[in-house]
Amino acid sequence: MGAQILFFLCAALILISAIMVVTVRNLIHAALWLIATLFGAALLYASLDASFIAVVQVVVYIGAIAIMFIFAVMLTRRELLIKTDQTNANWPLALGLSAVMLVALGYVIGGFGVTLNTTPAAIPAGVDPLTLLGKALLAPEAYVLPFEVASVLLLAAMVGAVYVAMNKK
């Protein structure tokens, strides 16, 4: 029962802070609420015994990406941020797409046959999830291709960023 209460607390944190992200006017506050959302997701992972994913979530999203948001917002002018519109003309379309996504996700998750009383399966003794994850990411019969494709994509993005920032003379 405790796990369910924890889940609902995390879910409430994630949802409330996610709503705050898109509604507050001050961009720094929005970034801070986004951090709360990401932290809630990390809590969810931790409550599912996925400590590696939880810690990586904190390192990558809170420690690197969100700090970059804050960094970028701080370099912009404060008055400018507060007066701009929060939506543009495409909001009905976005609302419709979100509704479709909600229905689709609800349908898929409903298909799992999970109820509120389902307890998570325990990790078998003698199995190190971290080693399994590492091997799966680099094994040719598992996920090495997607892993390498993702890293090439990131490398391309990095080269692009350097090119854009480069002083062309």
Binding site: S51, F52, V55, V56, V58, V59, I62, G63, A64, I67, D128, L130
Partner: peptide, 15 residues
């Protein structure tokens, strides 16, 4: 089990 990563996570929050 991921103690070293925990250290990096906490130091990244310290910023």
């Amino acid at each position: 089990s991921v103690g070293v990563l925990y250290i990096t996570a906490i130091t990244s929050i310290a910023v």
